[in-house]
Design a protein around this nucleic acid. Structure first.
Lengths: 157, 157
DNA sequence: TTAGATGCAAATCATTTGCAATGAA
DNA sequence: TTCATTGCAAATGATTTGCATCTAA
């Protein structure tokens, strides 16, 4: 077990304790959960249920899709991971530790560019003030065509 | 048939002609399509497939869900409507004519606030330059708790 | 020991599709 | 007339759930 793994597990335990104080029951730390957290972390972002399952079965032949879904939901509830919908269907998960970043998707080649912008933070502050909202999630999703794909398309039209 | 309806129909026809020039086949204008466009327009935004179906059956008892889905897809392809995913499940449609606006969803009461911000436009321009992207869609989605719900929650914790 | 997790299979929900009948142009 | 659309029912794909068994604490 690497140092990275341990951080993941401790983080889960810590969260459990916190949640327990609020009346939520303790959650045992199973080998499946360790595996899944590890895989999500290694993926570094943008992994979905089926992809996670495909990687998980390599390490644990008998793991089931139901377990993937149950744990993705649990991790989300515990605040360990973040769920995103990119494009129209693709639903992916990533560890929450990563700093807020936004997505730019090319409809031509499917490339996903992550970026961060100070302007967006300014905008968030503005909204928190204007509407008195306590924001927990900010997602800026943009799609279009990257330079290369835009040029290709112009040949066709 | 009201003036509003006619505008919708002409818009569809116009789009069809345009598309035809690009090699896409002509699409007949059925009563179901007229009804659906009318309902989407009346809804003014944030209507999903099932909701649309529920309203449609009142006017046309035999209309089927398959027709709703098929036409939502068609309208989307023709660029008549815009698809959005609000929150984790809710998928809604609205007429494309409405100016670009973004969504702020309260996880407490479910309220959806639409807003527009000049800062966001600035950000978009910035990205178009920096990445050479030709953007076709910009969606800023934010969720959290509105003032009232945030106050309620603070009583519990 | 025991509450909660797991694997499996069946169930559910949203969306799509095949096909014969219908309708718009 | 003719090709696309429609309604229906069946198919699909993603996610959830019931249940008997297993396992972390």
């Amino acid at each position: 077990m690497t140092k990275e793994d341990k951080i993941g597990l401790n983080y889960l335990r810590m969260r459990n304790i916190r949640k327990n104080q609020n009346g939520i029951k303790a959650r045992p730390l199973t080998s499946q959960r360790q595996l899944l957290l590890d895989l999500i972390k290694r993926a570094g972002g943008h992994i979905n249920a089926k992809g996670l399952y495909n990687r998980a079965v390599r390490k644990n032949k008998s793991i089931s899709l139901a377990t993937i879904y149950r744990n993705l939901r649990l991790f989300k509830e515990l605040g360990l991971i973040e769920e995103r919908r990119l494009g129209e269907i693709y639903c992916s998960y990533e560890m929450k530790e990563s700093p807020g970043h936004q997505h730019l998707v090319c409809k031509g080649c499917g490339r996903v560019i992550e970026f961060d912008s100070p302007l967006l933070r300014k905008l968030v502050d503005e909204l928190q003030h204007d509407h008195g909202f306590n924001l927990t999630k900010v997602e800026l999703y943009m799609e279009g065509y990257c330079r290369e794909c835009a040029e290709e398309a112009s040949d066709i039209v």
